[in-house]
Every structure is written in C-alpha cells, then in structure tokens.
C-alpha cells in the first residue's frame, strides 16, 4: 500500500499540469504581505493612522519612524521595498501557477528561491535592528516578517516536492 502511494505521488510530481498547494499559498501570503506593506507605507507618509501599541517594547510608531525606517540616505520607506518584494514573490508564483512549463523548469524555481532568500535575509537584518538597535518591536512589521518567512519556507517546500523537468 505504501509503495503504491509513492508511485502515485511520483506520477503526480511528473505532471506539470498539477498545481501543488504551495504556489496558491505563496500567492495568498504575498497578497496579505503586500496589503500590510502598503498600509505601512501610507502610515509612513502620515496618510493613514498607524493602529498599534505605543510606549512599551511593542511600539510600532517608534520603529516605523526611526532612522532605520528609510532606505539609506533616501526618504523611501523600507515598507515600499517590502511592497515591491511581495509583488515580485507573488507575481512569480502566479506566473508559475499559470504556466505549466514554468512550474517544473529550474530557472523560475531558482529565481523564486533567490527572491525568498533575499527577503528572509533582509528580514533578519530588520529583526536585528528592532531587537538590538531600537529595543522596540513593531507588530505590523512582525506580521510582515512572518509572511516573508512563510513565503520562503513554502518556496523551499515546493522546490523539494516538485519533480524536475529533466527527471
């Protein structure tokens, strides 16, 4: 019975027309992450109020208006970078979902992994800034960080399970 299941699973992997669950999950996480990032960008420019705790260690206002909230010497908020990242990660997942050849080709899979790894690396830097530099944690930012991690892990999982086209 177990051997039969493995054979069935292999048959599923070999079919590029089958959309595995990880890609829709990546798209969903990216849409949510994009929405939060756009909200944080609007809040950075004081276009909308930032709904969060203030005054304690959980203080998103201190984090999103800190010296680290902008990209280098520019006035561009890093939440704009986050928006672009989620758009890229979600866009890649949509393309791979829509295109059977992209689903099994190694190039798009590698691109998605690299995007995910870059996002995770930047998230680790931001967590360092929050915990070591600012001693403040922003709950909205943490939600974004968890979504970036989820996208990365889903991408890894999809790469593990997908059958390469050359197999």
């Amino acid at each position: 019975m177990a051997l039969r299941s493995e054979a069935q699973a292999a048959a599923v992997h070999a079919q590029p027309s089958v959309v595995r669950w990880e890609l829709p999950a990546i798209i969903t996480a990216s849409v949510v992450g994009l929405a939060i990032s756009l909200y944080l960008t609007s809040a950075h420019y004081d276009q909308v109020a930032l709904v969060c705790s203030v005054g304690g260690i959980i203080d998103c206002g201190s984090v999103t208006h800190s010296a680290y909230s902008e990209l280098g010497a520019t006035s561009l908020p890093i939440s704009a970078l986050g928006s672009a990242w989620f758009a890229l990660a979600g866009g890649l997942a949509i393309l791979r979902t829509a295109n059977p050849a992209w689903r099994v080709a190694s190039g798009p899979a590698l691109a998605q992994l690299l995007v995910g790894a870059a996002g995770l690396g930047y998230v680790l830097y931001l967590v360092y800034v929050e915990l070591v530099q600012l001693h403040r944690v922003c709950e909205w930012c943490t939600a974004v960080h968890v979504l970036v991690l989820a996208v990365f892990l889903l991408t890894v999982k999809h790469a593990q399970e997908a059958q390469p086209a050359s197999d």
Binding site: L124, V127, V132, F152, V156
Partner: peptide
C-alpha cells in the same frame, strides 16, 4: 540532500537560534 525532510525544520531551528541570539545581544 536538499530534498530531505529535515531541511525545513533545520531552517526554522536555525532562525529560532538567530532570534534568540539577537534577543540576548539586545
């Protein structure tokens, strides 16, 4: 090796260690 079932738990474990290290440094 990267298809091993241990990869994702290992990544999560490593990230937990990094965050704990940052908390201590903070």
């Amino acid at each position: 090796w990267w298809r091993g079932p241990w990869l994702i738990p290992a990544i999560v474990g490593l990230l937990v260690l990094v965050v704990v290290g940052l908390l201590i440094a903070g």
